[in-house]
Design a protein around this nucleic acid. Structure first.
Lengths: 241, 241
DNA sequence: GCATATTTGTCCGTATGTATA
DNA sequence: CTATACATACGGACAAATATG
């Protein structure tokens, strides 16, 4: 019965709990960099601002902690997570494993509903580059890789990828200017699309693997430098200005 | 009531955050089948039994909901999740993607610290089969695949795999006798180990992919039959007997 | 269809323990 | 070392939704 598919849209109406709504707000704030890695999220202050009780806020904190966006130190509070260099390495290891496996499984040119989001993301990236919009370039790159994983048609892989990219956003927020790291890879995205459109999954996967390896190397190098300079260890007691 | 048997787990809590300790207890109970898919977990009753407040229990519920072990229906409560057939398909799609990718990346015989857990799991399976211990056979199979993913050396992939296998346990709990589904695959595990020990990752990955495809087909078939017979839709109001 | 009882969702007050100035 | 601030956890309260008769 097709009606049950509507159930997926239930959460779009008001039918979600306060805790998840609060989590969504905080998630967006963290993704946008409004809360920066290392920032402490004081319960009382935030609960008062969002007009929710501390109990429901704590439920939201647990959710975000489970998503690795927050770390919760016992009796000290919740902090926006500041990823360690080892996390960057692991993130890219997982990305290589999953993205490449999904892309390599492509045996025929994907249909428009699958290919369109990919080309759209590349176009958005090209436009952002022309307008020198680093923020848009970054999100376009994220959308590109999210669309790649969507080729598998797996809800769990989609959500997993969302989580990985959300974590990766934390890494970029630790550094000053994320745009430089995405810029050189736009033409490589285009060649990946070309291979995919031709139905050459394994070829696209090879390009993608090299892409991710290069990106990781450059990112880890820049990250360890910036990271140690700031000395933003997780247990420092930074707050919002 | 049978819920009072939970009091035995009261002693396990005492070190980290209460919510995570409670979550660990419930997670173990669900994995063991003590809470069965479809069961409702009443807040007041469980909170009273575990001697925690409803607030902290709800934090634990949020965690388990995020792990897809519980579903939380607004104003109706938290239920042990009963996976749909589509979930089984997706679980195996993810398993094929990740496990095969990890195994295929093996280019040389793994060192003892990586290979030992794999062979140990196979041995445990062989022993369980000899003793006709279906429960042990199932866990041995789970340990085997967990050890396979550990080849990647990625904490995130390890945790991801743990979650997938925990979900899969729910599927087995919906059906009566899990042992029949693991039995025919033991020799295939052994051949996978042989290929791995020889450093032939791609060969092992091919065997593994076929293994997972066969297992999925058999499981989905048996699952849809059992599942519809029971009529255990998520919104039915089952409780513990 | 209606009235009642139960359960969840949410908030508040408060006590305790922990970390930090 | 004391004092302060804050997180942690508990219990009570009420409204809202749901299940039950």
């Amino acid at each position: 019965m097709a009606v049950q598919e509507l159930a997926a849209d239930r959460e779009l109406i008001g039918r979600t709990s306060r805790a998840e709504q609060v989590a969504a707000v905080l998630r967006a704030r963290i993704a946008a960099g409004w809360f920066q890695p290392g920032d402490r999220l004081p319960e009382h202050e935030i609960a008062e601002t969002l007009r929710v009780s501390r109990n429901t806020l704590r439920e939201a904190f647990r959710l975000l902690g489970h998503e690795r966006l927050l770390v919760q130190e016992l009796n000290r509070g919740s902090f926006v997570r500041v990823p360690a260099p080892a996390d960057v390495v692991d993130l890219y290891r997982v990305r290589r494993t999953i993205e490449c496996a999904v892309v390599a499984a492509v045996a025929a040119p994907p249909g428009p509903p699958l290919l369109a989001p990919i080309t759209t993301a590349v176009d958005a990236g090209r436009r952002a580059l022309a307008e020198r919009d680093g923020q848009a370039l970054g999100t376009a790159n994220i959308d590109f890789h999210q669309a790649l994983v969507a080729l598998a048609g797996s809800p769990r892989l989609d959500e997993l990828m969302r989580g990985l990219l959300a974590e990766l956003r934390l890494v970029f927020h630790v550094m000053d200017n994320p745009r430089w790291y995405h810029e050189p890879y736009l033409p490589r995205n285009e060649s990946i699309v070309a291979a995919l459109a031709a139905g050459d999954g394994p070829g696209a996967a090879d390009l993608l693997r090299q892409y991710l390896t290069d990106a990781e190397q450059q990112l880890v190098e820049a990250y360890t430098n910036r990271g140690t300079n700031r000395g933003a260890s997780q247990s420092t007691n930074r707050r919002r200005p």
